[in-house]
């Protein structure tokens, strides 16, 4: 059965050459360049808050890429979870740790040369591997692959167990985050959802 699945992804010589891209591909590439550029700026800029904002651009661009790949539901989740909450959390984190608003000269650690080496090495390796493997693969984008209805169906007909496990994970993360944000002598239990008050309170201390 899985042999059949493996054959489902076509390794046949691409129906189109790389030199005559489809409209979708052009959009994908343009957005891809934007995403990559935003990501690079995000990890190099010296303005910490800007880094978070560039991250928003990169993650939003990725949502567009998901849409282009016909994975609608994933795209919306991406927008909701990342742009809606993760980035907000990150900004909170930056502010609560009193990250300077302007340029900070020491945004990068002394580990930069090593980081560059490892980053370049990983990029070289992975790109080589991926290009070598997929140089002739073609994605068939016809038909719905990720509508909300479809997603709901496959999630609940195939992936119930990890889904349930995730609920334990989320609850544990929530409880963990709350308990760590409370200060030690703060014995009164915060009501659910006042993580933020706890955070700000701790900041005031």
């Amino acid at each position: 059965m899985s042999a059949l699945l493996a054959a489902a992804g076509s390794l046949e010589p691409a129906a189109r050459s790389y030199l005559s891209p489809t409209g979708q591909e052009i959009v994908f590439l343009l957005v891809g360049v934007l995403v990559l550029g935003a990501a690079v700026v995000s990890v190099t800029t010296r303005q910490l808050v800007h880094a978070a904002l560039w991250l928003v651009v990169a993650l939003g661009g990725l949502a567009v890429e998901f849409l282009l790949l016909t994975a609608e539901f994933v795209a919306w989740v991406q927008v909701l979870v990342y742009l809606g909450s993760v980035v907000v959390l990150v900004l909170f984190g930056l502010m609560l740790t009193r990250a300077p608003i302007g340029r900070s000269p020491d945004a990068d650690s002394g580990n930069r040369p090593a980081a560059l080496a490892v980053g370049v090495a990983s990029a070289a390796t992975l790109v080589t591997l991926v290009v070598d493997a997929f140089r002739s693969s073609w994605i068939d984008l016809s038909g719905p692959a990720g509508t909300t209805r479809l997603t709901g169906e496959f999630l609940f007909s195939h992936w119930v167990l990890p889904f349930e496990a995730l609920s334990v994970l989320l609850l544990a993360a929530l409880v963990g985050a709350i308990v760590l944000s409370r200060t030690k002598d703060d014995r009164a239990k915060p009501r659910p959802g006042n993580l933020r008050t706890a955070l700000t309170k701790s900041k005031e201390r």
Partner: peptide
């Protein structure tokens, strides 16, 4: 760094 470098090395 060691972790990631190790992973890349293994992959290579």
């Amino acid at each position: 760094t060691a972790l990631l470098a190790g992973a890349v090395l293994l992959a290579v």
